[in-house]
Amino acid sequence: MSTATKNTDNREEVRAVAEAALTPEIVAFIADCVKGDHVQSQLIRVLHKVQGHYGYLGPDQMDAVAQLLQVPTSRVTGVATFYHFFRLEPRGKYMISVCLGTACYVKGAERIADRLQEELGVHFGETTKDKLFSLEATRCLGTCGLAPVVMIEEKVYGGVEPDQIPGIIGKYTKMAQEEKKA
């Protein structure tokens, strides 16, 4: 190691900044991942963990992950943008996922999707202005027996008709309002 590197070593400082951008739990999780061999192979797992907490992958978090795992930021960004599962924007309070798998499609999922976009006034991948709903299309939730299927957060609605959409959305809007009041 040359002297120049030694003198400008700010590793601890950088590390502290990175750790501050994440929760202690995630930092500990990453510290655990780094112990094994082939550290980079843990990247996707770590990103899942980060998204699980924040709901999306922000630039600060991605930088921090790159720093703590010691992989280039470009690689983290590359992976985060490649996989559909990772979101780079904050999401709404309720995530509405419309299944566009084959079984749902032949049973009319497209009309459900159209109606949802119309009722919410957003396209797929967008969030409503009141930050209440995010709408996304998913590929097969594996519950083809109930097609067509819409999932809101963890709750699965099966055999959905377009006319039920306003009612279902209304329920969540009301729920949010009541939560606000309380």
Binding site: H38, Q40, S41, Q42, L43, I44, R45, L47, H48, V71, R75, G78, V79, F82, Y83, H84, F85, F86, R139
Partner: peptide, 26 residues
């Protein structure tokens, strides 16, 4: 266990290997 992240192409064996290695699943 290694988790996928929603890429259909990762069912292809070499893409799957890349994904386990923590790369883009190509």
């Amino acid at each position: 266990i290694r988790l996928g992240a929603g890429a259909f192409v990762c069912g292809e064996e070499t893409a799957l290997i890349h994904s386990i290695e923590g790369e883009r699943g190509q």
